[in-house]
Structures are given as structure tokens and as C-alpha cells.
Design a protein around this nucleic acid. Sequence first.
DNA 1: TTCTTATATGTGAATATGGACATATTGTCA
DNA 2: TGACAATATGTCCATATTCACATATAAGAA
Lengths: 120, 120
Amino acid sequence: MSIFTYKNMVMTELSRFKADFFRALAHPLRIRIVDELRSGELTVQELGFRLGAEQSTVSRHLAVLRGRGILNARKEGQTVRYSAADATLFRLLDVARTMFNHQLSELQSTLADLKHGNSR
Amino acid sequence: MSIFTYKNMVMTELSRFKADFFRALAHPLRIRIVDELRSGELTVQELGFRLGAEQSTVSRHLAVLRGRGILNARKEGQTVRYSAADATLFRLLDVARTMFNHQLSELQSTLADLKHGNSR
DNA sequence: TTCTTATATGTGAATATGGACATATTGTCA
DNA sequence: TGACAATATGTCCATATTCACATATAAGAA
């Protein structure tokens, strides 16, 4: 048995969780849904209106996020109010935005280098 | 034009970036690749050995991560050394682990509640 | 009860993803 | 040059994702 095999077995569980978690976020509409929920609960309708998407489409994407434990659903009368299950989620999205900004900066300086004839 | 339409147009670019970014991470092997790179550069071979995966499989997953600007590839002789393009990446994974821990805690207390007969 | 509203889900078609195998490309050595 | 080593990619097949439309479920209102 390889020296790395034990480590692999331990890492597998967490890496699968993270992969499933990221896959749940791997859609523009789901990202926007989560962003809309920064300020609090919203119903399926409200989300559909704000995002300009079909009712069934929104509902399905909400089901994905709920299924991963990313969102909570609270039924109230005939409406369902969705909210983030853990505020850490927003921190995660903020970190992703930071990386986005870094990539933009790098692109900028690459362009600047090209402009000044610096090869690399 | 709906009052939300302008906002949607602005949010679309960033949400697409985030979605593509998360999709690049949405695979257990890619998560493990990134985790292996916490301590520095590794070649394709080294990664394949540590993860117990086919050479072609590792190479393809590396291509996905490189394509999103998540990893850098540095060719040195006949080997290619991969590394994280931005250390912020590790912060992101750490935040994901925090959310994982929160989910576990919640599961624990739900079980404890059940054990003591508290309905909810 | 019947009608309406809010939400969820079944279904089929189009597209994307992932793995294994073979092959191509590039660099090194003799 | 020929043989080898490290990496990338073409190809085929199986599976997964996503959307739109229709339908199901459930709660309220008349």
C-alpha cells in the first residue's frame, strides 16, 4: 500500500463535499439567487421577478441549493421563503470576488507590459 | 424596462465568472489537486502518483484549472510544474471547510435533539 | 365545492462533463 | 539519428445538467 493511500482515504470525504458544494454554486443563476439573499429572505416569486427567470427554473435551482444545505426553506401559507443557511456563504462569495479582482489586475498589467514592448 | 433589469445586467458578468470559477473546482480530483499544491509546485507525475490517477486524467483536470486561471504551469525541461496562481484560492477552500464544519455541527445537534425527544 | 395562487416535479431534447485508451508533441540522452 | 520520458490531446462512450412545457400539489378565497 502506497504511503499516500491512507492520506488519500482521509482527504476523499472532504474533497467530495467541497466538490459537491462548488457544483451546487456552479451556475450563474444560482450565484445570483444567493446574492439576492444577502439582505434576507425572499420567496420564489420575488426571486423569479428580480432575476427575470421562469418559475419552474427558479424552483429547480432553489432545490439544488436547498439539497446541498446551502439554503433554508420556510413555508408560510402558500409561499416559501428562502434564506442562506449559513452567513459564511457570503464570505465565500466575497473571497471569490477578490480572486476575480486579482485576475483583472493581472490582465491589466499584462496589457501594460505588452504596450511597453516587454516580452515574457 | 423593469427596475431590476439594469442591476441584472451589471450582476451578470460577475455571476458568470463566479459560476465558471466554481464549476472548475466542482470535481473531487481537482479539489485534491489544489490541496496538494498548498505546499508548492508539483509536476503532473507527482500529482498522479499522490492521487493515484491516470496521467491523461490528471492532465485534463489540470487543463481545466489552468484554463480558468486558477493554476499556473511552468515548463522546465520535459516536465511541467503546476502551482496556484493566487494564494487566495486556499483561503477560499478554508472557508468551504468552515461551512462543512458548520453543517456537521448542525447535524450533531439535530441528532442530539432527536435523542432527547425534542420535536422541531 | 370551485377557482386562483404559489410552489414543486415529471418528461424529453439539447448540451456538457468525465474516464479510458490510443496517439501526438516536445525535450533528453546515447 | 533512434529510443525514451513527460505531458497534452483526439476519440468514443456513458452519464449528468439544464431548459421549457405541462402537470401535480397545496393553501386561500369565493
